[in-house]
Structures are given as C-alpha cells and as structure tokens.
Write a protein that binds this DNA or RNA. Sequence first.
DNA 1: GTCTATAGAAAGATAGAC
DNA 2: GTCTATCTTTCTATAGAC
Lengths: 194, 194
Amino acid sequence: MAWPSKQKQETRKRILSSAVTLFSQHGFDNVSIADIMQHAQLTHGGFYAHFASKQALYAEAVTAAARASALAKLLPSGQTANADLARLLAGYLDIAHVEQRHSPCPLAFLATDVAVREGNVRTAYTRVFRRLTAFITRRLPNDKGDRRERALAGAAMMIGGVAVARALDDEAMIESLLGACRRVGSELLEQQAE
Amino acid sequence: MAWPSKQKQETRKRILSSAVTLFSQHGFDNVSIADIMQHAQLTHGGFYAHFASKQALYAEAVTAAARASALAKLLPSGQTANADLARLLAGYLDIAHVEQRHSPCPLAFLATDVAVREGNVRTAYTRVFRRLTAFITRRLPNDKGDRRERALAGAAMMIGGVAVARALDDEAMIESLLGACRRVGSELLEQQAE
DNA sequence: GTCTATAGAAAGATAGAC
DNA sequence: GTCTATCTTTCTATAGAC
C-alpha cells in the first residue's frame, strides 16, 4: 500500500488533537465532525479521507489523549520513584487539570463516556488504564505484597477525584476534594520518610 | 395551583424511573425521549405533560437515582458506624453494581456525562455527592482532624472504581480493581480492630 | 486531499384530536 | 393526560468538482 504523505500525516494529527480537546471538553456526542474539522481549520467533507467513522476516530483519540497527557511527559523521568509519584499526584489532582488548562487525561475525562461505547474504544481505554497502573506499581516498594492493590486503588482515587470534580458546581468543594485526594493519595502511594 | 392527580404522579414516577435506568445504561445523549416513554409504556408525545424538556428531566433523574440507589437504603441503619461503612463499600464496589443489576449510583454512572451539562444537572449531582460524603464523615471517628479528608478521598475512590470498571473490557482487571478498592477503602474508612 | 453540496436518518419539541 | 402526526433542526456519511 502507498504510504501517506508527510502532509497528510500532519493533517491527521491535527484532527486527532482537535478531537481530544473537544471530546474531553464536551463529550463524544456533543461534538460533531464539523466541529472537529473546523477546530482543525478544515471543512467537514474531508474527514473521511482520514478516518472511517466518528467511532473509529474516538478509539484513536483515547490513545492520542493518553500520549499527549501530562502523565506521558512523566515517563522519562530519571528521578526517584517517590518523586515521580509525588509529581503525578500533584499534577493530576490539580485544578488546572480539571479545568482543562493542560492536556486532559482521558481516563478521568471520558470514563462514563467510554463505558457506553463498544469495541475499540473500550479496548483503547483499558490499555491506557493498564499503563497508568503499571507506572504506579513499578514505583511502589515491593517488600509488601499489596503494591498492585494500592496502585489500582490509588489510580481509582485519582481518576474519580478529577471526574467528580469536573461534575461539581461548587468551587470550594472542588478544591476540598482535590486536596483530600492529594493528601490521602500521598499517604497511600508515597513512602513516608521516618 | 391545582395539584396533580395521584394517577399523574404515578405516571411521572414511571417516567423518572425509566430515565434513571436508561440514562445510566446508555448515557444521556444515547437515549431518546421516545425510548424513555416506550420503556415507561407510553408514547413520546405525552412526555411534555410531565417535564419541560429533556434537560429538566435529567436534573430530576440524578436526584431520583440517588434516592433509588442502594446507598439510600443504607440510611436508616441502626447499625454501628463501622458496619454501615463496611456494607457501603461492599455493596458499592460490587460487580453487580457495575453491571447495573441493582439501582445504579448516579455519581459513578453519570460522572463525566454530568460534567458537560449546565445548571440544574450539575447542582443536583453536587447535592448527591455532598450527601454521600456527609454520610461517610459522620461515621468516621472524630478524634483525628482529617476525617472529612478521608471521607472525600474514600468517596472519590469508590466512585472512580465503579466508573472505571464500567469502561474496562477486561473481566479479570475489573475484578482486581473492585477488590483493590474494597480492600484499600476498608483500610481508609473502617476502624481496624486492634 | 480538500472543498461544496446534499442525501438520508434521527431526535427534540409542538399541534390538535379524543 | 395520552395519543398520532408533523415541523424543524442537526448530524453522519457520501458524491462529485477541482
């Protein structure tokens, strides 16, 4: 098969990036293909030269969102395990993240939105979640046998904290919730100095 | 103003109950008014005799879902605080809840769905969340000053655990996640015997 | 590969009979 | 108060010019 031109790949990337932003902000069903293409400075007719359907775009958008998210930028860290986890908690459970002032994590922004889809979308979401929990697990001390459990529960707390915060309409309660998850998450995931 | 007949109230309740089930299962945008009315054994034209709009129904559905949910049935407990919290964790972080085999909690099932709405829907969601965290906080020992923090973080873990579980497509990972949240949640919220 | 134009389907909301 | 019928808008997806 012929390989896509560099130009086409760039355009495709722009569409994906717009999709990530808009799906996260408004939800899959409240964003039309015309919206996405307009955001990417194109017209809606050209969409199908890049993706087979809106659903197909969604699956790729979940993966692309994970790659773009702040979490991904943690990966090549060179820091201590504790420092990585501290940065993850602080960056994730941040009001700037909730308000989408930096790249949103699809696990939190699209959780119940993904739950009602089929096939590829769920699979992509599952893969991203697996990657996050693996990232955390590797950084927990393995002298106790429950580190995977703590990683799973800690991830649920982070994701739940951000997802719920986005749904609340009370600014003070949002801050309390994020602060509580940061603090308890730190107890759960970081090794306390003694 | 004239009060609605008993008959009308019953019909209204049926519509609300159908809305709770279908919104939770498929998401707000993937359920039409015709779907809801058909589920309630009515035709779609009659909807507007009961609700001003689909949005208005949504706000009421969030509140109705909270009332119907398993959580609500815990409230008149007569049990010890620890027993209440243990039952809450076990019932909430249960595969039967995730698969909607009993009344779903709107906090978990509608989190990112509510986040993209305006007005009444967010307000209703916030009220339900406040009620859940108050329920938990009251049952934590107040000798430590951080009980509200633990309640908030624990609620986020429960909600996140169920919301994420619903999005995953890997049965084994769903069970691991729920089990991890139950176990860590128990450490966080229940007083351990010593 | 991207554009304009449009086909075809679905859904929210309303009108009017009964 | 609930029904059938319909208006109107919106959206996915396709067709065809360039």
